[in-house]
């Protein structure tokens, strides 16, 4: 959580609570607009909330956790870009052409973190309730270790998404590296986490009926939109090699 000064923190929490309630049901774009979410990254003078971008982007994580079928994050970053360039704001949900690469990648990072949190929760519920050999799967050490690994990947992806969100307010050249780092790490976390979650669920996780696949299949797509692994890994790698041996550690601490 970022520490806004007093009131700002409360406002961020209120917005998060309201968005949680909204996303829990079937929400329409008009509900999202009514809450002001498309303008969440804008200053108060521009009709936004004047929130710390990290707090505003936390909404996108919630959207990932509930698989909201609207481009909440994309519209937020697209409107922020338009406001920055003095252009008219979007009149409805953003389409792919409206979304800047970097902003889209930040939004995708947060969506992934939200969905991965759900993948972990579903898996914990499943291994605690499903019994084989007369006891819950959670009692088997192999399952415990797989779950620990899943949780570690989810924690890493979550921290990476925080890193991407914090990059929103940074100068573009710095943000490119920070977001690249997040995208690469999240992409790898998705591969490992999805694999482990499906393994621990058994066949039920492979059905259309059970909800796990709604998250895992979304993740397999989201992680590669707005620049996939090669795109971002090359950027980070080029910066590291350009820094050279002497400049490498300073680059890491500044990333």
């Amino acid at each position: 959580m970022t520490t806004g000064i007093g009131g700002e923190m409360d406002e961020a929490m209120m917005l998060r609570d309201a968005a949680t309630r909204l996303f829990a049901g079937d929400c329409d774009w008009s509900d999202i607009e009514a809450m002001g979410l498309p303008l969440a990254l804008l200053g108060e003078d521009q009709g936004g909330f004047g929130l710390d971008p990290v707090d505003a982007l936390a909404i996108v994580r919630l959207a990932g956790a509930t698989l909201v079928p609207w481009p909440v994050g994309e519209t937020m970053v697209a409107n922020a870009a338009r406001a920055g360039a003095g252009q008219a704001l979007l009149d409805g949900p953003a389409t792919a052409d409206d979304v800047p690469m970097l902003g889209g990648a930040i939004a995708r990072s947060l969506l992934c973190a939200g969905a991965l949190g759900r993948v972990l929760d579903l898996t914990i519920e499943h291994v605690n309730s499903r019994e084989q050999f007369g006891r819950p799967l959670a009692k088997f050490q192999a399952v415990q270790h797989a779950l620990a690994q899943l949780a570690s990947e989810v924690a890493a992806a979550s921290a990476a998404a925080d890193h991407a969100a914090a990059a929103f307010a940074r100068p573009a050249d710095e943000a490119e590296i920070a977001v690249g780092v997040a995208r690469v790490r999240i992409g790898e976390a998705v591969g490992i986490a999805n694999g482990l979650a499906h393994q621990m669920h058994g066949a039920i996780g492979f059905t259309e009926e059970y909800q796990l696949h709604r998250y895992t299949t979304a993740l397999w797509r989201w992680r590669d939109e707005y620049g996939g692994h090669p795109y971002w890994a090359r950027k980070v790698g080029a910066a590291a090699l350009a820094a050279g041996s002497a400049g490498y550690w300073p680059l890491v601490t500044a990333a």
Partner: peptide, 11 residues
């Protein structure tokens, strides 16, 4: 490879 390792390190 270096991009990937650096991403891990930063996170």
């Amino acid at each position: 490879a270096v991009g990937r390792l650096t991403s891990h390190l930063v996170v």
